[in-house]
Structures are given as C-alpha cells and as structure tokens.
Design a protein around this nucleic acid. Structure first.
Lengths: 226, 226
DNA sequence: CCTGCGAAGATTGTCAACAATCCTCACAGT
DNA sequence: ACTGTGAGGATTGTTGACAATCTTCGCAGG
C-alpha cells in the first residue's frame, strides 16, 4: 500500500454540517415555507451555541432558501406563482444549454455524447420501472434524477452547481404543492424524447423537447394555485 | 401627501453591509485571489466584533467567492483556467437563454423586444463612445453593462440574480488577469451583432453571435495564461 | 370606548473571553 | 546532520452574557 492511496482528510465545519441538515429539512418539507427558524430552539436541537447556528443561517440566506428580516427573525422562503415560473425558466435555460453542450462535445468526441445518452436512457428506464410499480414518489425522484444526469453530463461543474440550487427549490415546491396526478407513461415518454434528441445530435429537437416538458411540468405544478 | 407615498423602511444587517464591501473588494482587486482574510484584522477595520464579520464571510463562502479551510482560515477564491472556461460556459448559457427569452416574449408583445433592442443599442452606443475616447477601462465596464442589460431585459429575476454572481467573478478575472489589448471597434461590433439579432427576432443568429463573442472574449482572457 | 404609554417577555445582534487548532522554531537525542 | 518533541505564537471556533429590538398586554387618561 503506497502513500498515494490515502486521501487528504477534510472535516466539514460545524456551520457546514448544520447548513446541510437545514437545507434537507427545507427541501423535504419538515421546515415548511414561511416557518420561522428560531435560533435558540435550533441551536439547542443541534447541540451547539447560537454562533455556529447563525453562521449556517447566513449560508442559507445567501443561497436564497431563507429570508432574513433583521431583528425579527429568519424565515424559510416562500415561493409565489411568479417565482415558481421563474424557477422553471431558469431550469429550462440551464437544462437546454447543458443538452446543447453535450451535443456540441460529441462533435469532437462522439463517445462523450454516447455515454451521456446511455446515462439518460438508463435514467428513463429507472423512471419506467417506478411508473410500472406505481410508486409516484420514487417516480418523481427518478424524474429529478434524469434532469440532474442531463446537467451532470454537460461537463460543466459550474452549471451543475447552479442547477443544484434550482433543484433544492424544485423539491421544495414539489413537497409543498404536491402537483396533480399525471399519467406516468406520458411522464416517462417526455424524458425519452429528450434522451433521443441527444442520441441523434438533434439540437432543435432537444431544445423543443426540454422546453415542452418543462412547460408541462410547470403547468401541472401551478394549476392547483389558480 | 398621502400615507401611500412612504416606503417600507429596511435597515440592512451588519453582515449584509460587510458582505457588500468585501464583495467589491474581491471584484475590483483590492482583495486579490488567494489572499487570506484575517478575521481579527478585518473586524477591526470594520469596527465590529468577529461575530458579524464571520457571518458575512459565510455568505461569501456560500456565494463561492471565498474558500473556507476550517481551522486554517478563509481565502479569496482563485480561478484556474478550467474554472474560467467554465465561468464563461455558464455565462454563455445564461445569456443565450436570456436573448431567446427576449425574442420569445416579442411573439406576444412586440413592444417588449423593441424596448430590449433599444436598450441594447444604447449600450452599444455607450461602448462606441468609450472606444472612440480610448478609455479602455470604461469600455470594459460598458461591455459588461451590455451583458447585464441583455440579462435584465429577459424579464427573469432569477436568471438575473444568477448572472450577477457570474459577473462578480468575471470582474475578478478581468481585474486579476488584465486581458490582452483588443481592437475596440471589433469589440463594439460583436455586441452590435447581438443587438441586431434580437431586433430581427433571429434566434439562430442570436445564439451564434453570443457564443462567438463569448468564445472570443474567453480566448483573449486566457491566452496570457498559456 | 378609544388612545397612548410603559412594562414585560421573547427573540435577535453583538461582544469578549476561553477553547481548539495549526504552524513555526528551538532544543535535545541519535 | 537529521529527526523528533515540546513550547510559543497566531489564528480560528465556540460559548455565554449582555445589549438591542420588537411585539404584546395592561393600565391610565380623555
């Protein structure tokens, strides 16, 4: 065993640990939109003083998941209809661009696009499996995973990081709004169209498939608000 | 004078004030990439205790402008060549999407696209003025302003916020790297092509103009690193 | 009854002190 | 000369106490 087989060790900061847990609580609904985040209570729950808790909060404020009202407290962000629309606008922008990057990369290196297309087809297959099992929650997770795979396949860490933030808020919305029932087969099919457009290096079809799919997903999500 | 003419008052938090100043210091080079940010020193300079200073730092860490190494300190982010390339990849993604959103909005509401095209032409004119005055620094500012105008005209606050982060880092790079001399007239011309494509509702020309321009700008910026 | 004021309680904002960690240097041992 | 150990200094991490702010409620006065 050589020295090169050891990894640098890196302990996550207290604030980082807290941030991660709070982000998940926000994402999955245990901290509902509009909830006040009490420093004293949360610090006690995490077993730390208020200092590191406040530091974690500042990260979440900067990330946009928490709204700070000085001297009055911190609140989990609420997304109104316009903001949800804008969230999907931003997702569409990132995801179409990532698809086009995948196709572009394939011009010089067809293996790259082939690998991405494979990953996306696998993601569709996973969705199909969940759809047949009738497990809507897992189908929804697999759906989101498809989109994350699309962005990850672009080769842009920056776009990936930007997308992660959008996906946190997407999950927030899905948890809070519980979009209406949807035909699972249609859902899977829309994703297959995206994977196919990439397989065929068809830029225009890709953009159309992503945009159409995102519009449909948004309409489903927002309809109950009307 | 009626009560409705008064605005809600909102005092910015101490951490927010500090964050803003530090961000500018990072953007414009007084805090150079790689610099260690000493809590004791900075807190003294801002006239506060280390607590609020640490809170501001956490915001910058989350924003990606500062790198935290627990127990060793906080450092202004350094961007290597790959990261600069990725930064421009992300900018290209956002800016092409915003251009397309402008054109899309014009389908229903031609005044929207007309107004955006006017703003962009004005931004080009401002660039032209600076180019003729031979003021390269102001030309660079006007150039960035064109891009900010493009994104702002999309009507997506979310994309705008995302773009602001990218522009902070762009300014960091421009400050730190001092890209090579460039023909000002070429610079202005490239931006006019973008404005023109939007005026003519030409999606494909827009995408081509933005991508071509961003590739050129990136090459100019990166060449001295080679 | 309505309005204004002050007090109390809850919570957030900040501070200074102490704890913990890391790095560097000097000294001792081989 | 090289290596290991311990001390000191610098800096970051955390805590608890106090200050500041906001909200609510009770009481007094008109």
């Amino acid at each position: 065993m050589s020295a090169t087989s050891f990894q640098r060790v890196h302990r996550e900061s207290t604030a980082g640990l807290i941030t991660r847990q709070l982000r998940e609580g926000i994402m999955y609904g245990s901290l509902a939109p509009g909830t006040q985040l009490s420093e004293v209570t949360l610090a006690a729950q995490f077993g730390v003083s208020r200092g590191p808790l406040r530091e974690a909060m500042q990260r979440l404020v900067q990330e946009g998941l928490v709204r700070s009202e000085p001297n009055r407290g911190l609140f989990v962000k609420e997304l109104d209809e316009d903001e949800i629309r804008d969230l999907y606008t931003a997702r569409t922008a990132i995801e179409t661009s990532c698809g086009r990057l995948i196709i572009r990369a394939g011009l010089d290196n067809p293996e790259r696009t082939e690998a991405a297309a494979n990953d996306l087809r696998e993601a569709c297959t996973a969705m199909q499996t969940e759809a047949e099992a009738g497990d809507l929650e897992k189908l929804s997770d697999a759906d989101l995973h498809f989109h994350e795979t699309l962005v990850a396949s672009s080769g842009s860490p920056r776009l990936q990081r930007m997308h992660e933030t959008l996906m946190v808020e997407t999950r927030m919305c899905l948890t809070a709004l519980e979009g209406t029932y949807r035909d699972p087969e249609d859902q899977v099919h829309e994703h297959r169209l995206i994977a196919e457009a990439i397989t065929e290096n068809n830029d225009a079809a890709l953009v159309e498939a992503v945009e159409s799919h995102m519009k449909e997903a948004l309409d489903r999500l927002i309809r109950p608000l009307a």
